[in-house]
Simulated scan of single mutants.
Amino acid sequence: MTRFQPIAISALVLLAPLAAAAEQRIECPGEIPQASVKLTNTPPGWQTYVAAPLFLHNAAPTNGPPQDLGQMIGDTVRKSKTEWIDKYSLEGRYPNGKWLQCDYGVLNEISLSKRLDDDTKECTISGKKGEKAGQNLFTIRCK
């Protein structure tokens, strides 16, 4: 064994926790297409029509699945009229899991949610205004 091998082994041991905390990038779909929005049980005699897709408007981690309504409030790192960055600490217990919720429509009428890895410790969400009314664009990084 050369004198450099113990150094290499020590470096691998020190870097192992960094590999476990690898950053994951999550992308919310940019819109929910018109064809995906279906109205059922409408009053007799009324015809439905969906005029446009619903654009992504908000994104945030939640404490549990969407029906738990556990949307979290992040710490604002930076904010201007058109851009913002929020950071969410996900330390602690989450008995129903850690989730990411993507909301669509100006009033967040519809949401898509995805469960995050249980070992996720934080998420940083950068947002900026989109081109369409009510549309926002997000970069989501969790580790």
Rank of each mutant, 00 (worst) to 15 (best):
V77K: 13
N63Y: 01
M72N: 09
L69H: 15
R93Q: 15
T62R: 01
D68C: 10
I85M: 03
T76Y: 08
L54P: 09
H57L: 02
T82V: 10
R93I: 13
T62W: 06
M72D: 08
W84H: 00
G92L: 12
D75I: 12
G74V: 00
F55L: 06
T82C: 00
T82D: 09
S89M: 03
A60M: 11
R93L: 09
E91L: 11
Q67D: 12
E83M: 05
N58V: 11
T82N: 09
V77M: 13
D86A: 08
M72Y: 03
R93T: 14
P66M: 08
E91T: 08
P61Y: 07
G64Y: 01
T62C: 09
I73G: 11
L90V: 07
D75P: 10
K81S: 13
M72R: 09
F55A: 02
P66D: 11
E83L: 05
Y88R: 10
S80C: 01
Y88S: 14
M72Q: 08
G70T: 12
N63Q: 06
S89L: 02
G92S: 02
T82K: 03
A60C: 09
H57D: 11
R78L: 13
P66A: 14
A60K: 00
Q67C: 03
D75S: 13
S80Y: 05
H57P: 06
G92Q: 04
P65W: 05
Q67I: 04
K87E: 15
S80I: 07
T76D: 14
P65E: 06
P61M: 05
P61V: 06
H57G: 07
T76A: 15
W84C: 00
H57C: 08
G74H: 01
S80T: 14
D75Q: 14
T82E: 09
L56V: 06
G70L: 10
A60H: 07
